[in-house]
């Protein structure tokens, strides 16, 4: 019988991270679009700001990858 626990756990780890990132980025993105519309010179800041929440999904990915690979 296949042990579904690990893949499901990995999925949750990754999925929640992605949802979190998406949520954060949607807000930052819309605000960033507004800011850039008014002050194009802040483009650099905005790119960085939008990229910041990516940490969440990346950490989620790392955790899930580690679960799958290490808990085999």
């Amino acid at each position: 019988m296949v042990d579904w626990g690990i893949p499901i756990g990995a999925g949750i780890a990754f999925g929640l991270g992605a949802v979190g990132t998406g949520f954060a980025q949607s807000k930052i993105g819309s605000a960033g679009a507004g800011t850039i519309a008014e002050r194009p010179e802040t483009f650099g800041y905005m790119v960085v700001l939008v990229a910041i929440p990516e940490t969440l999904v990346i950490l989620g990915f790392v955790v899930s990858a580690m679960m799958i690979i290490m808990l085999k």
């Binding site: 930052i28 819309s30 605000a31 507004g34 800011t35 519309a37 008014e38 002050r39 802040t42």
Partner: peptide, 11 residues
């Protein structure tokens, strides 16, 4: 939307 509008207003 407030994110966008208010960001513009802040700008």
């Amino acid at each position: 939307n407030y994110g966008y509008v208010n960001a513009r207003i802040r700008g």
